[in-house]
Design a binder for these strands. Structure first.
Lengths: 194, 194
DNA sequence: GCCGATTATTGCGTGCCCGCAAGTTTTCGT
DNA sequence: ACGAAAACTTGCGGGCACGCAATAATCGGC
């Protein structure tokens, strides 16, 4: 390993990812085509999809790269605290790490939100949970549930639209909204960690 | 209401949906293009996407149509039983309703599984939960969590692949797998219903 | 250093999804 | 019954994602 091939792949991957993020910030996420990203990174459009399965994936990867280690560390750092608290802290930590501008960029677009949750949150969370709950399926289910809750929190946070009928004013800081959305899952998390 | 326009729309919608299901059963879900479905229903391919946002949506709609009322009824039917039991029964009922052949068809394809969960399960479940939990966000989160658990149950059921390292033999009946995947969420459901 | 084997890149073709702008059908007020 | 307004259908064009086969680059053994 660590041959030339490996390094080249890593280079083009980060080149694509950084080009994607830069262009998204410059022109807005909707005004950047895959061709633009590929051209900026010096590869063919076809090659782009050998590295990333969607237009959004490259953008979130720029913010994601080391997320697995981070989430795992955040969960482990909680030590023997209740699992609900460990997960909440890990999630909040994950979402306060990127630059605010980048975070806005991602949370503003539904597609980017989902890509972020799917690629940057669920897999490392499932791995981290495996060490604190007995069953593998339980870990997967809880990780998926947490991911779903985060998705909802981001959606509500990004849309201060007063729904219509009821006057549901959702606002406040992102950490608050994340913890609020995660709260209903706390009994499940703590019961599983028992 | 009940004008000519309304009836026509309903007619083409069911025509598309039934054609989609029939063709999927006949040739396999991967061997049917939206052009085929549109042609079979007598509309243009462009019109197809005015009715359904994806190739899969029309297929699942054939099995889905009345799901909202059914899920709501299943939850209400549980009366004052624990919410966890009500939800589990509703989910199992939902997934034992279609013909086995159709169910196999849907669970075999990841895209169809997800479409089924997203369009046929989460929305009605969120509505049904609203009547038993206080907060709207809590209802959304729990519905999303249950949907995620169901997705995992279906994936594990459809893949009897012995993962590799650990010898995780997942098998058994679909209802059993659904209840097993939902079990970790029971504490959250019952706590919210308190 | 050379050569066969593995692996990455690229172009091409196919299919999906959707915005937009006619053109057509239904609805509704008078 | 008529004509304007609203809603539906369709073709066109653009963008995304991917399977496939040919080409080019890299690796590993000698």
């Amino acid at each position: 390993m660590s041959g030339l091939r490996e390094r080249k792949k890593q280079a083009t991957r980060t080149a694509l990812s950084e080009a994607a993020l830069r262009l998204a910030v410059e022109h807005g996420p909707d005004n950047v085509r895959v061709d633009d990203i590929a051209t900026a990174a010096g590869v063919s459009p076809r090659t782009y999809n050998n590295y990333f399965p969607s237009r959004e994936a490259a953008i979130v990867f720029a913010v994601t790269a080391d997320r697995e280690a981070r989430v795992a560390a955040a969960v482990e750092a909680a030590g023997s605290a209740p699992l609900s608290r460990a997960v909440a802290d890990a999630v909040v930590t994950t979402y306060t790490a990127p630059a605010p501008e980048t975070l806005r960029l991602i949370t503003a677009s539904p597609a980017l939100r989902n890509a972020y949750a799917d690629t940057a949150l669920e897999p490392p969370l499932a791995a981290a949970l495996s060490s604190r709950v007995p069953d593998a399926t339980t870990a997967r289910v809880l990780a998926a549930a947490v991911t779903a809750a985060v998705r909802i929190a981001l959606a509500e946070w990004a849309q201060p639209t007063g729904g219509g009928t009821g006057f549901v004013v959702v606002s406040g800081s992102l950490p608050d909204r994340l913890r609020a959305a995660l709260a209903p899952l706390n009994p499940a998390l703590d019961a599983a960690a028992g």
